[in-house]
Every structure is written in structure tokens, then in C-alpha cells.
Design a protein around this nucleic acid. Sequence first.
DNA 1: ACAATAAAAGATATTTTTGTCTTTTATTCC
DNA 2: GGAATAAAAGACAAAAATATCTTTTATTGT
Lengths: 164, 164
Amino acid sequence: MSFIPPAFTFVVNSFTNDYMAIFSKTCEYAMRAVFYVAQKSHEGQKVGIKEIAEQINSPEAFLAKILQKLSRERLIQSVKGPNGGFYFDAVSLNRPLADIVSAVDGNEIFTGCGLGLTYCSESNPCPLHEEFKKIRNQITHMLNNTTIGKFNLGLIKGKFTLNK
Amino acid sequence: MSFIPPAFTFVVNSFTNDYMAIFSKTCEYAMRAVFYVAQKSHEGQKVGIKEIAEQINSPEAFLAKILQKLSRERLIQSVKGPNGGFYFDAVSLNRPLADIVSAVDGNEIFTGCGLGLTYCSESNPCPLHEEFKKIRNQITHMLNNTTIGKFNLGLIKGKFTLNK
DNA sequence: ACAATAAAAGATATTTTTGTCTTTTATTCC
DNA sequence: GGAATAAAAGACAAAAATATCTTTTATTGT
């Protein structure tokens, strides 16, 4: 008969960055929200922050801050009071997703060096410069060619998810 | 004569994420350090943390933590004491940069959804799924096909920068 | 005008990432 | 074996990102 001790798991200093995505959470929420509101706008409806947050699965108050910022920058439209909410006008629906990303995450993703060097350039390249340029260009291209309203029909048809 | 008030600049809630790069700072430092140490290893030398930190322009104590982690995972070699330091053996020099990135930033960048959705997949795609897949694949490809020692000659010749 | 509604703004709290400092351990050289 | 060296480990601190709560402002319908 042997004594088996309880399985302790104490992480001393695990130290892997928990969740290192390409975009910040702020930006992820922003993009999801924008697609959701766009779809509703296509159907002629305004949406309140509560519904948006529920539907895209984001913290309501935090998302409110994000949309406030987009609103201040006239990237999204909003009206206060009863029957108010967020929506996109026709012009805004045609804006590139890139505008949302740069409003929220800044321009680093479009211009930054993969190794984080300030003075990395064609004439003073980091080792990854050439390869990273391709990646950056592809991201930029995608973000510039994806309009806010691009997925409206697909979303209405239930082809895409924005939740979890 | 007119009174010109002092120019106050109080940022209420500027709220753009300061610096949103593809990789975390931890990962940027790790990659720069790895390339620097690799180059020295090619020349048969070990390097101390102080020199590495200086040469790649990173906070010394912080970089020490990063290299400790890589060392624990046997991705980099180290010896303590006089004439000690960090280096790569032949096997390690041939490891893909992807190993460094996933040790430090995890696997999100290789597998994650662009909109941060946990259950995004081929059968349950987010709007950006297809486009993002291409980008992820390209990043993955680059990281898998770049060995740690790949830029040794270029670095020795001064073709690349790892600093600032 | 007034009550109700919903976003905007302001203030504050929590968590994660980034960064520093001190002590310990392993190795080398004398 | 002892001093010196350099990484490893541990503890702590600061900054940034994420998240929440409260108050104010604008708008609508009655």
C-alpha cells in the first residue's frame, strides 16, 4: 500500500504572455461591434450598447468606451435618448476597417518593425525586415479592402459568427 | 495688449493603445537577443547578459528573465561563472524562430482568431476568417522557416541592425 | 415642461505586462 | 578551498491595458 500525495500544481513564474493576439482586445471588441452594428444598420435599425455587448460577447461598459471613442472620431454614428443607439450611415458603411483599427490600436500594425526597432528601414533593416514587410502589407491590404459593411449580407444570412 | 493663457494640455482619456505591435515587447526582446547571441555563437563566443542587453537595447534585468525562461526550456544554452554566458549549440542554431515566439508569447499568433473568438473555425467562421488565415499562415511560415542562426553571416557583415 | 431613455463623460478598480532589485546557486580560476 | 564571476531564482514595483461604476448630457415621447 502506497501513499499518493495530492497533485499540487503551483506555478512559480509561468511567464508566457497569456494571450498574445495580433490585435488588442479593445480592437477585437471594436471590430466585432462594428460588424454587428453595420449589419443592423443595413436593416435600418439602431442598436443600443447593451444589445451589442450581449451579441458580440464583450464587457458592456468597456465596449461603451470604445464606441464613444469611435463616435468622437465620427467613425460611427449615435443618438442619445429613447429609441437612440448606434448605427452607420451610408458613408461610414463604406469606410475601411483600417480606420477602426488605427483609431483604436494606432498605426503600429501598419508601419511598425517586427522586432520593435524604431529606426528599422530599407536602408537600416532588421533581420526580419523583408519578410515582415510582406506580412504587414497583407494585413494593411486586408484592413483597407474590408469595408465596415462588407459582411452585412453574410451576417444576416447567418454565415458568420461574432460571438465567443 | 492681450492675455495669452498658458497652454494647458490635459489628456482626459486619450485611449488609443500606446503601442500595439504584432509581438509583445517580451517577444521582440527575445528575438533580437536570440539573433545577437546566435551571431556570437557562430563566431564561437559566449555572451553575457549585460552585453546582449546593451547591443539589442533592452532592459537588462528584464531580458535576463526572458533568457532564463528560454534556458529552462533548453532553447538557449548558458553556463554560469567566469567566462560564462549564453550561446547556441549547433542543434539550437537550427531551431526555428517559431520555437522562441511560442515559448514567450504562446500559440495564439499561430492559431488564434483575428476577432478574438474562441470558437471561430472553418465551420463557424468569423467574418475575417478566410483572410486572416492567409495572414496567420504567412506569419507561421516565416517563423517556421527562419532558423535562429539564419542571419549570422548577414549580422557579421553588418547588413542588419538589432538596435533601437 | 417633465419623465424616461440612452449615450457621453468622468472617476476608479483590476489585471496583465513590463521592468527592477536582491539573494542564491553553479562554475572557474587562483 | 576560497574569491570572483555570471546566470538562476525570488520578490517586488511601475506602467499599460482592460474593466467597472457613477454622474452628466442630449433626445424623445407624453
